[in-house]
Nucleic acid binder design. Structure first.
Lengths: 159, 159
DNA sequence: TGTAGATATATGTTATAACACGTATAGTAG
DNA sequence: CTACTATACGTGTTATAACATATATCTACA
């Protein structure tokens, strides 16, 4: 039997195990979906990671968040949040201030320009998401979300 | 209601839509799983992309594959397969030869050193995969694999 | 032929990711 | 109040990703 993923990857031999096929399926799907996001964001001059940071900071509101708080809320691990925020600050999309009470912290807030950019992106991104998986239906989406949470829980358990 | 993903990302507000939550779930899960692979491969000095190339070339056997064939079989889009193969060749894990019949093609084959490296990795990687999602069971894995193929199919459809 | 177009790969350049290390501030035990 | 540790952030460096462009080879057709 040939699975759909095998056909996509032009792979003749079957996968070594169901676990292996599942892991490649997740990676492949994430890559395909991200590619769509990259293309949608490109005309606006930002990357998916930068877009996620802006959304996080919009959610945080006027109080903003410190560097590590932003980092911990990102879906993908980034080892250099400082320069990620540097670039957004350089583009005028966020602003930073050192905390007065505890001077170790640097609080980052989204600027009006950042909010404006997000406002212009909300509709195209929502449309992309509907295009990418609007056909699945609420039931399948719910099952998928649950299964993926199961996967992350299983993967996070100690040895 | 607070979903599991919301808790992981320390996010107060609910997601904008089920589609958005699904997309973030996929990206998050892929990131978590890849991190495990990165850590497993690190002692061996290769990245997940390089590991995938070696597996592809092992599957191709003695005949090897040309550059674009390797590129098209990778799970994630890589825009610079030439230098990806350059690095593997420099490490002695693959060997390249220009095709004699059609001199545009460069055929890449895995070397004995590359096969040896893969042989040493097969067991740790299989163990990692069992650790990451062995607990899910065949039924849930099958459902997950099917749903993800549905997602990719939906995302690939034209406008 | 021989010439335009298609295909396959390579190269130059810039931005970002990844890692190691360094600095500043705050809490804490003696 | 001093030294020690922990925490939060910054910087230097290297490797890789991403993009645009160039080169070589083949194919098809006038």
């Amino acid at each position: 039997m040939t699975t759909r993923l095998q056909a996509e990857l032009k792979q003749g031999k079957p996968f070594a195990s169901p676990e292996h096929e599942a892991i490649l399926s997740i990676a492949r799907t994430a890559s395909v979906l991200e590619h769509g996001v990259v293309e949608t964001l490109k005309p606006f001059g930002i990357t998916p990671t930068q877009y996620n940071v802006l959304r996080i900071l919009r959610g945080a509101g006027r109080e903003g968040l410190c560097r590590n708080a932003v980092r911990d809320r990102l879906v993908a691990r980034v080892p250099d949040a400082t320069r990620l925020l540097d670039r957004l600050a350089e583009a005028g999309l966020v602003a930073r201030d050192r905390d007065t009470a505890d001077r170790r912290y640097v609080t980052t807030c989204i600027t009006p320009a950042g909010l404006d950019l997000l406002a212009r992106l909300d509709q195209p991104i929502a449309q992309l998401h509907r295009h990418q998986l609007g056909r699945l239906g609420a039931r399948k989406l719910g099952t998928l979300i649950d299964l993926l949470a199961d996967v992350r829980e299983a993967a996070a358990r100690p040895e």
